[in-house]
C-alpha cells in the first residue's frame, strides 16, 4: 500500500522536475542560437571596430609592424586641405541630398497614392533603379553626362540651342551631377516606404476631416504629415547614413579620376579607401574612419533627438 502511495506521489514531482528541465532547456537552446550571431558579430564587427580605434594611433602600412604614434594621424588629417574639402563634400551630399530626396519621394508617393490606374506599374518603375547595381547605373550616367557626340543630356541641350554643359568635367557641376544620380537611385525605395506609411493612416480620419470641411492642404498639414512622422524619422536617419557613406556612385562615375576633378566630388569614404588601399596608409585611414564613425553617431543621435516623440 505504502509502495502504491509512493508511486502515486512520485509522478507529479517527476513531471515538475521534467518541466523545469524543459524550460531550462528552452532557454539554453534560445541562448545557443543567439550566441552564434553574437559571437560572430563580436568577432567580425565589434572587434575590428575597436581595433580601428587602436590602429588610428599607429603608422601601420600593412607591411611592417604598427608603431604607436599618438595623435599624429589626427594632426595630419586636420591639417590636410584635402580632408576639409572632402568633409565639405560629404556634408553637401548629406544636407542637400537627404531633404531633396525625401521631398521628391514624398511628393511622388503622395500623388501616386491617389492614382488607381497602373499604380503598381508606376511604383515598379520608380523602384527599378533601386534594384540596379550601383556600378552599372553609375556607368550609364557617366555616359549621359559626356559632352557631344555621345552625351545624351548635352545632345538634348544642343537641340534647343543651349550651350554644352561640362557636368562631371567641372569643379562646380560635378558634385550636383553625382548627387542627382544618387537621389534618383534611392528615391524608389523611399517612395515605397512613404506609400506604406500613407496606407497605414486610417481612412476614417480623412473622412471625418472632410465632413468637418477641412481643405486638402489642411488635411496634409494636420493629419497626413503628423501621422507619417515615424516613417519620416526612419527615412531621414536611413538616407542620412546613406549619403554620409556615399561611395559607389562617386567612384564609378568619376572612375578615371576618382573623386575628381580636383577632389570636387570626393566623399570621406572614398578618401578612406584611397588612403588604405592605394597608398596603404592604414593608420591614417583608420583615423579617418574614426572621424566618420563619430560624425555618423552624432548625426544619427541628433536626428533621433530632434524628431523624438514628445
Amino acid at each position: 500500500m505504502t509502495s502504491a502511495n509512493n508511486t502515486q506521489v512520485a509522478p507529479p514531482a517527476g513531471r515538475s522536475r521534467k518541466r523545469l528541465r524543459m524550460q531550462t532547456k528552452r532557454v539554453l537552446w534560445a541562448w545557443g542560437f543567439l550566441a552564434l550571431p553574437i559571437i560572430f558579430y563580436s568577432w567580425i564587427r565589434f572587434y575590428p571596430t575597436l581595433d580601428a580605434f587602436w590602429l588610428s594611433f599607429t603608422d601601420w602600412d600593412l607591411l611592417s609592424e604598427p608603431n604607436f604614434i599618438g595623435l599624429d594621424n589626427y594632426r595630419h588629417l586636420f591639417n590636410d586641405p584635402q580632408f576639409w574639402q572632402v568633409f565639405k563634400n560629404t556634408f553637401t551630399y548629406l544636407l542637400v541630398g537627404t531633404p531633396l530626396s525625401l521631398f521628391f519621394a514624398f511628393i511622388i508617393a503622395y500623388f501616386l497614392d491617389r492614382v488607381r490606374y497602373l499604380q503598381g506599374f508606376i511604383r515598379a518603375l520608380y523602384f527599378l533603379p533601386f534594384l540596379t547595381t550601383a556600378s552599372a547605373m553609375a556607368w550609364v550616367w557617366r555616359w549621359f553626362y559626356q559632352p557631344v557626340p555621345i552625351g545624351i543630356i548635352n545632345g538634348f541641350l544642343a537641340n534647343f540651342g543651349i550651350a554644352q554643359q561640362p557636368f562631371i568635367r567641372s569643379v562646380d557641376q560635378a558634385l550636383p551631377s553625382v548627387l542627382a544620380t544618387a537621389i534618383w537611385a534611392g528615391v524608389g525605395f523611399q517612395i515605397v516606404i512613404f506609400m506604406a506609411g500613407l496606407r497605414a493612416i486610417p481612412q476614417t480620419y480623412y473622412e471625418a476631416a472632410r465632413i468637418d470641411g477641412l481643405g486638402e492642404i489642411a488635411i496634409l498639414r494636420k493629419i497626413t504629415l503628423p501621422l507619417l512622422k515615424p516613417t519620416t524619422v526612419f527615412l531621414v536617419v536611413f538616407s542620412s547614413i546613406g549619403f554620409l557613406r556615399i561611395f559607389d556612385q562617386v567612384y564609378n562615375i568619376t572612375t578615371n579620376d576618382p573623386g575628381g576633378p580636383l577632389n570636387s566630388t570626393k566623399p570621406l569614404v572614398l578618401m578612406i579607401y584611397q588612403s588604405a588601399f592605394s597608398s596603404y596608409q592604414m593608420g591614417y585611414a583608420a583615423a579617418q574612419t574614426v572621424v566618420l564613425f563619430t560624425i555618423l553617431l552624432v548625426v544619427s543621435l541628433m536626428q533621433l533627438w530632434v524628431m523624438r516623440e514628445r
Binding site: 568635367r169 567641372s170 569643379v171 579620376d257 575628381g260 576633378p261 580636383l262 577632389n263
Partner: peptide
C-alpha cells in the same frame, strides 16, 4: 591630373 585640371577647369 590635378595639375592639368587646375589650369583647364
Amino acid at each position: 591630373i590635378d595639375m592639368v585640371n587646375r589650369v583647364l577647369l
